[in-house]
């Protein structure tokens, strides 16, 4: 089997086909946790394990698809540019909120990881998990984490944020649209934005803006935080 698959065509084809199956299952079941990324990854991992194919063989084609993450990260500037007027006169509040929120998240990860004796590289891969996948993987790579783990943690974080947001807002009396939208984008990136769009157009726009702003904040904050704790 292996020799037929030792071409980029294999990785590209199975990724796209599995992704369409993922979209189909997601639409049919209408369950957030069965999102196309999770479903297609499980299908491909199952296929590779069953036929005993190395990841490296799959990734000959896979890397051609991963290539597009970089240009897609650059164009994340566009939603930020489109909505930046919403932050007029509130920049200080917004940056303070996002920075404090992200910092509190980092401390909670650090303390709990020490408590549970989590291996250092795994803990480091947890740090960027609230930022959007493209940025989270880049940060993980930069600080000595594992991009694939960072991606898995990031997707999980997005799902938790999506499901818990409305309870959190109720329990902690977070009521104004700006705080809700920005908290969602900062915490749960794209999935948070999906929830924010369900809440309203303003929340959605603010959330998509927060993805990029929080990403940039984390790029500076995480290395600083690690220096602070001399990790």
């Amino acid at each position: 089997m292996g020799m037929y698959l030792d071409t980029p065509l294999f990785g590209v084809s199975i990724s796209i086909i599995a992704f369409f199956i993922g979209i189909y299952i997601n639409k049919k079941t209408n369950k957030g946790i069965l999102n196309p990324l999770i479903v297609s990854s499980i299908i491909i991992i199952g296929f590779l394990l069953y036929f005993d194919i190395d990841y490296e063989i799959y990734n000959k084609g896979g890397s051609m698809i991963s290539f597009f993450i970089a240009p897609a990260t650059v164009v994340l500037a566009v939603p930020l540019y489109k909505n930046i007027r919403l932050l007029k006169g509130k920049w200080f509040n917004v940056l303070t909120g996002i920075t404090l929120g992200s910092l509190a998240g980092l401390f909670s990860i650090y303390i709990l990881s020490k408590l549970f004796k989590i291996e250092a590289t795994v803990m480091i891969s947890l740090f960027p998990k609230s930022t959007t996948a493209a940025i989270s993987m880049e940060i993980a790579e930069h600080i000595g984490g594992i991009p694939a783990l960072a991606l898995a943690f990031t997707v999980l974080t997005g799902n938790i944020g999506y499901f818990m947001a409305e309870y959190i807002f109720k329990w902690f009396n977070i009521e104004d649209k700006m705080s809700k939208g920005l908290a969602l984008g900062t915490t749960a990136h794209v999935l948070g934005t999906a929830k924010a769009m369900e809440l309203g157009e303003t929340e959605g726009a603010l959330s998509s803006l927060a993805i990029t702003v929080a990403g940039i904040v984390s790029v500076f904050l995480i290395p600083w935080f690690m220096k602070l704790l001399s990790l």
């Binding site: 303070t96 929120g101 947890l126 999980l156 938790i160 947001a165 908290a183 749960a188």
Partner: peptide
């Protein structure tokens, strides 16, 4: 433990970010 860490820290980020911005606004 990883699942617990991810769950707790996700809520922490959401609460602190949301409350800080709400209070400052």
């Amino acid at each position: 433990p990883l699942l617990i860490i991810i769950f707790v820290s996700t809520l922490v980020v959401m609460i602190v970010t949301g409350l800080t911005i709400q209070i400052l606004n």
